[in-house]
Amino acid sequence: MKRILVIQQKRIGDVLTSTIISNNLKKHFPEAKIDYMCYANCVAILENNPNINEVIVLDEKVRKNYFSLAKFILYIRKKKYDVVIDVYSKFETNLITLFSGAKYKISYDKGYSNLFYTHNVKRIENGTQSEIGLAILNRLLLLKPLIKEGITDYKPKIFLTDIEKQQGLTLLESHNIKKDKPILMFGILGSEWYKTYPFEKMAQIIDFTVSKTNARVLFNYIPSQKEDAQKIYDLCKKETQQNIVFDLYAKELRGFLGLLSHCNALVGNEGGAVNMAKGLNVPTFSIFSPSVDKETWQIFEDEKNISIHLKDIKPEIYQQSTEKEIKQETFKYFDEYPFELLLEKLESFYKTVL
């Protein structure tokens, strides 16, 4: 194999998780040139990964314009890939893969997919229990046409430089934050409304955290989310607010990663930030939205990576209601989470990691 392309559009968590494909390919085909296609807002998560030679951006304006997409397909074809692994498998990547000229065109079996791919892999069914999560296992299945055995690298990794780590430390010091007491990053907002734990209860979790740990608290948010972040801050007790460094946030993703690398843990909504923390070996405590598939995204759980999901507590709800119904009534089902149990698990987590 001389040239391989991995395609993973979508969000940061998806893109980071799919790096396990590149990592394993490089281990088994060390001489191969391995490229990775993603959206522009995800490029930073791939920087410095020694298993990726080039990151190729598929812009939205290209995706939405047939003429531009055709030019892009020709650009990909000229690269003469031997293998294309399409993890995303949507219409535009169906076409990119089909006309790539690659001998091996690999993706998931979707019934119609044999029109575009030479190898169509069946996903493991939802509901299957796994210690490492179906998000990992299903991606590794895409390697089976190329690697028959010896796949051992399961965990996504983020590669920070010493300079980036130092910049994170400098940012903390610029706000008079020292490592003489715990530093906790809070993922206060989910990527979607239905992935966001209610503000009032998130504030209560932060109050509880400060009362138990006296930690310095950082909020993970971007400027466009500042209004919502302020609402959560205002809901916290006055004594808690003294420990929150509200205006400390990185302007770019690599800056956030450098900052996160110095935190003792990340706590909050399950999502991309949790996956990034795990990629940096930063302990995590995450709260799943009740409609998010737990079997897929409860990955690498251990004593330092804990999550809480309604399905673990009240599985009967999922026998009575569909995922769509649960999503439509997200906040009703968030109320079903036993709050005292959540705090109990959180306190145990702090005792383990702090």
Rank of each mutant, 00 (worst) to 15 (best):
E239V: 12
C236Q: 01
N120A: 03
G268I: 13
K332T: 14
I34W: 05
L171Y: 10
E164P: 00
M202L: 06
S321K: 15
V245Y: 02
L140H: 08
Q129W: 07
Q9L: 14
Q298Y: 03
T196Q: 01
V87M: 10
F331V: 04
T352F: 12
A32N: 04
L218S: 13
Y75N: 10
K157I: 08
L169W: 00
E270G: 05
L346R: 05
C263I: 11
K332V: 15
I151E: 09
G133H: 09
K238N: 13
A70G: 12
F72E: 09
S22H: 00
F67V: 15
K71R: 14
C38G: 13
D153R: 12
K345E: 09
L146Q: 07
I76K: 09
N51V: 05
R3M: 03
L354V: 15
F285D: 11
I34E: 06
T330K: 10
I232T: 06
N114T: 13
I136A: 04
G101W: 02
K10R: 12
N305G: 07
D228C: 08
H175I: 03
A250N: 00
L143D: 04
Y249S: 04
L343W: 13
N51H: 14
K144C: 09
S224V: 13
V267S: 01
T17N: 06
E340C: 08
Q319I: 00
I132E: 03
L189A: 13
D82K: 03
I34Q: 00
F219G: 08
Y350W: 05
P145M: 02
V55W: 02
K122I: 15
N305V: 01
S307V: 10
P30Y: 06
T209Y: 08
D293F: 05
N126Y: 14
E31M: 11
I7M: 02
I177M: 11
Y39I: 08
K195E: 09
Q167S: 03
A40L: 14
L16K: 05
K212F: 03
E31A: 15
F29I: 09
K345D: 00
G133P: 15
L95G: 05
L137V: 10
V282R: 04
Y36M: 03
E125D: 14
L69Y: 07
N51A: 15
Q319A: 14
A250T: 01
P223K: 04
I147S: 13
Y318M: 12
F159L: 04
K327A: 10
S261W: 00
V87G: 11
N264W: 08
C263Y: 03
V210T: 02
K179Y: 02
S191V: 08
